[in-house]
């Protein structure tokens, strides 16, 4: 079972709960219901799943999805070696065998014909047919499927099929409420909470512009970046510009606005 060992989350990840999501997740896990975590980029979805895996003491197999991914990349494939052919499990198969939580991050990025392979795992069957191998895997009793996706602007072009969506229970994540987000940033980076709160203020200014020239506001992740820079002695104004304002826009008026917000917040 060393295979299983390697996927265990070793130490407690820091996760700041926003509401009742931890107990709700535990309930979903107890019923082995598939879970979908929705929310804008960098708002803590991955961190949450990691934390839950740790809390439940289950292995976590994460897959970052992309559009070149095929079903075989998830399920597995035959490889050619000196002795002939050899089957290699994909991450989804591994998770189903060892009873891990399988986390498909940004699942909309994958093409729809790829996503359908998860269907049999998400209903009462809890099986994974390996067509090419002629094997049907019964998922381990501990196995659970979790997907994340960002219902933001991309969803205009990319969206999950209804038939896929309807197989999941869902959590709606958003950037945490300001005080909470400040605590997260402070704990994550060791910066003081007052400064963290100022950084959040800048982030919120940008979030107010969502739909008015910005597709996405400044994520918690970017705030953490800015705080990390400040911990290394970078001045607030520079850190904010570099980690929060510049990455998200090329529009001169919006940049001027964010710069002014930064100056207004930090003086």
């Amino acid at each position: 079972m060393s295979n299983k060992e390697q996927f265990l989350v070793k130490s407690e990840p820091f996760y700041q709960a926003q509401g009742r999501e931890v107990s709700l997740y535990e309930a979903a896990y107890a019923a082995r219901l598939p879970v979908m975590v929705k929310g804008p980029t960098g708002c803590g979805k991955s961190r949450f799943v990691e934390y839950m895996a740790w809390k439940l003491g289950k292995p976590l197999v994460s897959v970052a999805c992309n559009e070149d991914m095929t079903a075989s990349d998830l399920v597995g494939r035959w490889l050619l070696d000196a002795g002939g052919t050899r089957w290699q499990d994909g991450p989804l198969t591994t998770a189903a065998r060892i009873g891990a939580i399988c986390y498909l991050d940004e699942v909309v990025e994958a093409r729809q014909d790829t996503t359908v392979v998860i269907h049999p795992l998400t209903d009462h069957r809890r099986t994974l047919p390996l067509d090419k191998k002629g094997e049907v895997i019964e998922a381990h009793p501990d196995f659970q499927l979790v997907i994340s996706y960002n219902p933001g602007y991309q969803s205009l072009m990319k969206d999950l099929k209804q038939s896929t969506k309807q197989r999941f229970t869902a959590f709606d994540f958003d950037y945490p409420e300001a005080a909470l987000e400040a605590r997260i940033v402070a704990t994550e980076t060791g910066i003081d909470e007052a400064t963290a709160a100022r950084l959040i203020q800048v982030a919120q200014a940008a979030r107010n512009l969502k739909g008015h020239g910005l597709d996405e506001g400044i994520s918690t992740r970017l705030v953490v970046y800015a705080a990390s820079l400040m911990r290394r002695g970078v001045a607030a104004n520079d850190a904010c510009r570099m980690a929060m304002a510049r990455p998200i826009t090329d529009d001169a008026d919006i940049r001027a606005t964010l710069d002014s917000a930064i100056d207004s917040v930090f003086g």
């Binding site: 107010n208 008015h212 020239g213 008026d253 964010l258």
Partner: peptide, 13 residues
């Protein structure tokens, strides 16, 4: 004008 409108929205909603 646009800068000001954005600014009002960003800082004051």
């Amino acid at each position: 004008e646009r800068k000001l409108e954005l600014w009002l929205r960003a800082l004051w909603r």
